[in-house]
Simulated scan of single mutants.
Amino acid sequence: MIISAIKVKQPLGEFYIAKIKAGDLLRISTSSVARYDKDGKLKGNQRPLDPKRLKAIANFIMSDEMSFPTSILIAANIDRDGGIVEKHDDRWTVEKTNTTDVFNLVIPDKVSSLIIDGQHRLNAFNYADSSCKEIELVCSIFLDLPNPYQAYLFATINGNQKRVDKSLALELFGYDVENEPQNTWSPEKLAVYLTRKFNFSKKSPLYQKIKLAPLYSEIDEIVNREQWLLSTAAMVEGIMSLISSNPQKDRDMLAMKRNSIWGDKTRQILSNNNRPVLRYLYISSKDDELYSILEKYFWSVKTILWDNATENSVILKTIGISVLFDILKNIIEKYDIQDSYDLYINKIRDINYSSNYFALSGGGKTKLKRILKYRLGFIQKHDLQESDIKFLQGIIE
């Protein structure tokens, strides 16, 4: 399916406005109810569907006064679990047209998007006459929108329209939307804040490098690859891995304490066993010091690895960013915090990051992690796979 769309630029990022028939949107999208999985991790960003409400909306849909002028918010290229769809054939893609700011969105005929806001409006069409599925709906479409921002949009939009249960808003949004003090921020909130600081600070090694934009595009005019580098999701998750073993548990604890008779509590109420490696900085609200460590590390990564990488290099992709955060944890654990990380990054500069050995499928992240840890002395040769050794010997290109 191909639809025309208008590109809109706002501070959060770019998105597209288009019209999609209700039946088509039901076929290619899903919603994700907020829930905890078996490991205690929060999944999803929506309230459960209310059948009574769906039937009431369906009656409105079948009436002569039916009108839904406000947008359905869609996170395209997001799977049912909230992860980014990586397989190119399963992704929404963007094609340029001859009209400024008007593009064609090419949409695969399968579930490849999440409804951020408007799930009741959309699902009510399943309770209405089948002919109603031909009705066109206004849609605002974000491509590759990370989980924290899906939750952010849902919480703030619904906070202005229909009040969301405060505990749910806290879990989804990551912090008190009513101007929460910085020293009470959850790990997710701090990670989002630092990610945005990296993106918008002109002195940052990641200045204007973190974009809410398609991961893949054959149209260089649409995605400026000289400016784009990594996804917001990869950066947020990487930072959180340095400061919390269980971000949801931390967030729940902070929310519980804020709602108690004792009033606001800072991060110091949280447990601190120095795991993960930079948790002590998070607990003591030394956010500037945390940012400084990351800044020094990524300056080394940028000048030694990223500036010399080819466009298809795995070190520029999500799995590469994830492994780089793992490597930073290992460096700090073994060598402590450094003024410069050039010594360590230089040890992994000659890896062939463009090799098919690190394909996105087939355990590419695990392979990359083993090889970088070996080069940095964190594991021994006997910890490598035979294929890793062949790769390092240049037998596998």
Rank of each mutant, 00 (worst) to 15 (best):
A34I: 03
R35C: 00
R35D: 01
Y36N: 03
D37G: 00
K38V: 04
K38E: 12
G40F: 02
K41G: 00
L42Q: 01
L42G: 00
L42C: 01
K43C: 05
K43W: 01
G44N: 03
N45A: 08
N45V: 13
N45C: 04
N45E: 00
Q46G: 02
Q46H: 10
Q46K: 06
R47D: 00
P48G: 01
P48I: 06
L49N: 04
D50F: 07
D50A: 05
R53W: 06
L54V: 08
K55W: 00
K55A: 12
K55I: 10
A56E: 15
A56Q: 15
A56L: 14
A56H: 08
I57K: 07
I57G: 03
I57C: 04
A58R: 08
A58G: 05
N59A: 15
I61P: 01
I61Q: 08
M62K: 07
M62W: 02
S63A: 12
S63Y: 07
D64I: 07
E65T: 00
S67W: 06
S67Y: 09
F68W: 04
F68T: 05
T70Y: 10
I72N: 04
L73E: 11
I74D: 05
I74P: 10
I74A: 04
A76L: 11
N77L: 09
N77K: 05
I78A: 07
R80M: 10
R80K: 15
R80C: 10
D81R: 06
D81S: 13
V85H: 01
E86M: 12
K87T: 14
K87D: 15
K87H: 10
H88R: 13
H88A: 12
H88Y: 13
D90I: 10
D90A: 13
R91D: 03
W92K: 10
W92Y: 15
T93M: 04
E95D: 11
E95H: 08
E95V: 14
K96V: 14
T97V: 10
T97N: 13
T99W: 04
T99S: 11
T100M: 07
T100C: 02
V102D: 06
F103C: 04
N104L: 15
N104A: 11
L105H: 07
L105Y: 09
V106F: 06
V106I: 15
I107V: 14
I107Y: 01
P108A: 01
D109A: 09
